[in-house]
């Protein structure tokens, strides 16, 4: 069995990849990192393309999705990648009754409507915290300029209130592998980390393994119980605490960090799930 673990070129390294490749080898799978847009990769020679760290897709989402659709077998499925790489899915989740962080979508041609208090502007298509900025309530002019820049670049914008709980309780990231809960992390506020704290080879985040609040886990499990998500190989649900309970910040089904270096057993769980998928 051969698996291509899809990643990106450049210095934005996936620190989970050695553990994952090691675990895949441990279950008898020949796996190799492959850069998703590398024309020399012979994708047809593998039994499965496992999307993991394709973090540079955002400016070329259409190209990325076309690449995914062209794969004979890919996980997660191309339809899932399409859904999860545009944060408009938050509106879909809200419409289905799931609790999400209040989200105002400001698509191209629309004027931004900012909430009271601090808020965050981000592109609807983006990976990591790139082009994401937190603003104070007196920085509306700067925020509007940010939205205008995104629009000028052909990107839609998402405006959300900045929930102060992220500073005190952090952000919960619940990782699911093969449809089952695997582990949870508490993430510090990335938006409070200056750019200089990040280097090419090191991902610096205030991060720790945690036991998730049962209510947070219930919210995540309800989202993933949707039949559309029956065959997910991996998923990450990011949640924030609020006065109204746990709110979904992101549903990461495309290229989430799974924090395998913090929980090495999770790499083995993912490897076993990959093998089960290949044997199905």
């Amino acid at each position: 069995m051969r698996v291509a673990v899809a990643t990106c070129a450049g210095d934005d390294v996936d620190v989970d990849s050695p553990l994952l490749l090691d675990a895949l080898a441990g279950v008898g799978i020949t796996a190799e990192l492959a850069v998703w847009d590398d024309p020399s990769v012979e994708w047809d020679r593998v039994d499965l393309t496992l999307v993991r760290s394709t973090w540079d897709y955002a400016p070329r989402r259409d190209e990325f999705l076309a690449w995914a659709r062209a794969r004979r077998r890919i996980a997660n499925r191309a339809e899932i990648l399409e859904y999860s790489t545009d944060k408009h899915y938050l509106a879909d989740l809200a419409a289905r009754g799931h609790p999400v962080v209040p989200s105002h979508f400001c698509d191209r041609g629309e004027r931004p409507d900012v909430p009271d208090g601090p808020f965050v502007v981000k592109p609807t298509v983006g990976a990591g915290s790139i082009d994401v900025t937190r603003y104070r309530s007196d920085e509306v002019t700067a925020a509007r300029a940010h939205v205008a820049r995104l629009h000028a670049a052909g990107r839609d914008a998402l405006i959300q209130p900045y929930l102060e709980s992220v500073d005190t309780r952090g952000e919960h990231a619940l990782v699911f592998i093969g449809g089952a809960f695997s582990h949870a992390m508490t993430k510090g506020a990335m938006l409070n980390v200056d750019g200089g704290a990040r280097t090419a080879l090191f991902r610096r985040e205030r991060m720790s393994v945690t036991t998730p609040d049962p209510d947070a886990r219930a919210v995540a499990e309800r989202v993933l119980a949707d039949p559309r998500f029956d065959d997910l190989l991996y998923a990450r649900v990011d949640l924030l605490a609020s006065d109204e309970g746990w709110l979904i910040l992101e549903l990461e089904l495309a290229e989430p960090s799974l924090f395998l270096t913090h929980v090495p057993d999770a790499a083995r769980r993912l490897a076993r799930a990959v093998r089960s998928t290949l044997e199905a």
Partner: peptide, 14 residues
């Protein structure tokens, strides 16, 4: 030879 380094706050490869 490659090394993977991870602590509670950073992770990296070289």
């Amino acid at each position: 030879v490659g090394i993977s380094v991870a602590t509670r706050t950073v992770a990296g490869l070289n």
